[in-house]
Write a protein that binds this DNA or RNA. Structure first.
Lengths: 184, 184
DNA sequence: CCAGAGGTGAACAGATCGGTAAATGTTGAG
DNA sequence: CTCAACATTTACCGATCTGTTCACCTCTGG
């Protein structure tokens, strides 16, 4: 299987898992929707869990790339970027097919802390907060670590409520709280 | 089946769904762990989804009762109660078997907005925010509605991060943000 | 032309899924 | 004691689950 085909397989599997959930999406459906036979899939991924891990790696990379780039496009100071994150989130909430955070859902469906999927989901959040902390440091925040963690809480809360309420309002609400935090 | 037995069935099913997830918990396991035969279960709940709805009703009632009572015990002003919510959350995060919010997980596993389970999960959040808004009004907040929504974001973010990180830190971090909001 | 690599569909394990049928307790009221 | 109403056990249904096997197809390099 070429690198392209493999990437395409992971990309399409991502959409299926994102839309239907992990347990609720069978490998027969993955094979059918990707156009790759189950035999081939299992030649490249020993188990369903390994495919899910590959999907999460793709999601981690593409989501972080998208979010960080969008933050840079929307503002040119570190402080402005942290605030602009919530504008970027609002754009995401408005997208067709927005269904919440894939990593929160992965963590919810694979709760065992020893599970590689659970660990990888939290690793994504740690990478986000690390970036926030770097920006907070550049912005000369009093306590960059604490500020980054607080912004993470706001971001996750906004995503969860946006997904559950099927509205985008949470982005603005979270942004107004972030405004308080960054004003100091 | 007596009311006691029925309540006990729902209570034990709740633990199973909470610990293992909804899709990942089969009705055979529910029957085995509750000691109630599958035949009997299906005499009282037409489908698995109906059992899940009953479980969510129990969870909604008992969680709200617990949270609101704890908030009252920890503070005697409306403003203090809203802040004390995060101390109550920290207690919850420290409990053995804490696995995040059951309603977030229900919403993640049943994403269809037309699904009764999805609707009921969000209804729980609306009831919480209504209570927050009532307290915010009593506390004479400038914009009780907005404040209640912001506190909800903080609460949900804290729960998600506490569950994913397997630590309790998020409660204090959220509380310090809430402190900013309530100081105004 | 041929060997080998890699792909395919289809059938197949063996387990489990949600849900049901029928026969066998068990129990309490008259 | 008797009978009706209930609960239970046991087996079963068809569908689906993850994962494998197998016979076949197709392409490529030598």
């Amino acid at each position: 299987m070429s690198q392209n085909k493999r990437a395409e397989l992971i990309r399409k599997a991502l959409l299926l898992f994102y839309r239907n959930g992990f347990h609720a999406t069978g490998m027969d459906l993955v094979a059918k929707e990707t156009g790759v036979s189950k035999t081939s899939i299992y030649k490249h991924f020993r188990t369903k869990d390994e495919l899910i891990l590959a999907v999460l790696r793709l999601r981690d990379e593409s989501f972080r790339n998208w979010l960080f780039r969008r933050m840079e496009e929307l503002a040119d100071t570190p402080q402005g970027q942290l605030l602009a994150m919530f504008d970027a989130l609002e754009e995401w909430f408005l997208e067709d097919g927005f269904q919440g955070c894939m990593f929160i859902k992965a963590s919810a469906e694979f709760q065992d802390p020893n599970d590689a999927i659970n660990a990888q989901a939290y690793a994504h959040k740690r990478m986000l907060v690390d970036h926030f902390e770097a920006l907070a440091t550049q912005a000369k925040a009093d306590d960059p670590h604490a500020l980054a963690r607080q912004l993470l809480l706001l971001k996750e809360g906004a995503i969860v409520i946006a997904a559950m309420s099927h509205t985008k309002d949470a982005a603005r609400e979270a942004k107004s709280v972030a405004n308080h935090l960054l004003a100091n």
